[in-house]
Design a protein around this nucleic acid. Structure first.
Lengths: 213, 213
DNA sequence: AACGCAATACCCCGATTGGGGTATTTTTTA
DNA sequence: TAAAAAATACCCCAATCGGGGTATTGCGTT
């Protein structure tokens, strides 16, 4: 089969080993070729630009950022590229956010490899691939459920401020960095606390760490 | 190369995709053969008994149990089998526990695959394979100001208080918990800050997380 | 006996956070 | 286009933290 006919797939996952493993699995398919592997969120858009993949396999759990946010950016910058989210979180909320973001699918990392392959084919063929198991198990394992539900209620600016707080900046420093008034940052902090149900910075930092913000 | 000369490797990881990926990576080596894959902790010992692998690649992060505990059991039941821990946690504490358990290595999941391969070869050859990057995190902090030495200078009471701060307790609450005056806790906090070279709770919490306190 | 160190406790005061409001403007969505 | 959500900004005051001191007690080491 000639190279031109192969579907080019870009892998985004901050675990190199997982990424290499996926590469091996995908390239057993004669019509798939992994055109590149990206390990950092900031490299995603430039790499798509240079390699022009047909599909991006994007891990939701990226250090520092959220895979769904990146997926959104990919779609706005490259509307023709398919984006398939890969995650170990079996959560309806996350699947819903993925769907609302207009992304093309949501597949669990512990899926059988055949499901992954067929999901990719469905997406490449113009369809969607949302893992059916997500709705089923959701009611039982609500370990991450509360946190992610809360995560979804956060506005973009709030997430931005959480990250800066986590990095050790004070209200005043954050205000300077974002070119807004300190009183505004204070307002955001109050809203964040109330949305997450916490009362001090320490809990906020731990929440941010736990949720990969 | 005949099958008898190949090193038999058993994979234990509750992510099937990761496991399949690893299998692909390992079997590109002519002298490696993945003799089996296990996805549940309870299947580990029986499978080792029936397949008699030379080496077990064991994920620390197994649903329900702890990979290190399983490693210990493997060593007591099958002293001849090599056990290599695979994990995404870059923590000195975990590496030390792995070493103390007498296991043969500790490799980070986001390692380059070449590191994994050479680690496996080292262990099969009777050596050890402890990821150097784990210590480097500590050494890296040494550059910033002798973190390890600082850590040794921390008194028991100070470590105790760091843990409580990390868990979200205020000065007043810590005082009540330890049956000492709030002013004493304040003194400890000041000393901690000065020893670690930091100026606020957020950095303290992050330091505690990084150092597995 | 003298020294170091850990643990205890207090004073003072400025900086920062936490939480209760209210309110305007802009953007998004129904 | 009207309603909702996000982002902006301020008031007030209490709670908490941050850092500068000083000081006592007790327990090991030298």
């Amino acid at each position: 089969m000639s190279t031109q006919l192969r579907h080019k797939i870009l892998l985004v996952d901050d675990h190199q080993m997982m990424s290499d493993g996926l590469k091996g699995i995908l390239e057993k398919q004669a019509d798939f070729v992994v055109c590149g592997q990206v390990f950092e969120a900031s490299d995603v858009l430039p790499t798509i630009h240079s390699l022009q993949p047909h599909l991006v396999l994007l891990d939701i759990n990226l250090r520092g950022t959220n895979g769904i946010d990146i997926g959104r950016k990919v779609l706005t910058d490259f509307p023709v590229v398919k984006v398939l989210m890969l995650t170990m979180y079996n959560q309806t909320k996350l699947l819903d956010e993925t769907r609302r973001a207009g992304l093309h699918g949501y597949i669990l990392k512990d899926s059988p490899t055949t499901d992954l392959i067929s999901g990719i084919r469905a997406v490449l063929g113009g369809g969607k691939a949302f893992d059916k198991r997500v709705q089923q198990v959701d009611n039982q394992e609500d370990v991450f459920g509360d946190d992610f539900a809360r995560r979804l209620k956060l506005a973009f600016r709030e997430v931005e401020i959480i990250r800066l707080i986590r990095d050790g900046f004070t209200t005043e420093q954050i205000a300077a960095k974002l070119f807004i008034a300190a009183s505004t940052v204070k307002t955001h902090r109050k809203n964040i606390h109330s949305k997450l149900g916490i009362t001090n910075v320490v809990d906020l930092v731990q929440w941010a760490n736990k949720n990969g913000l």
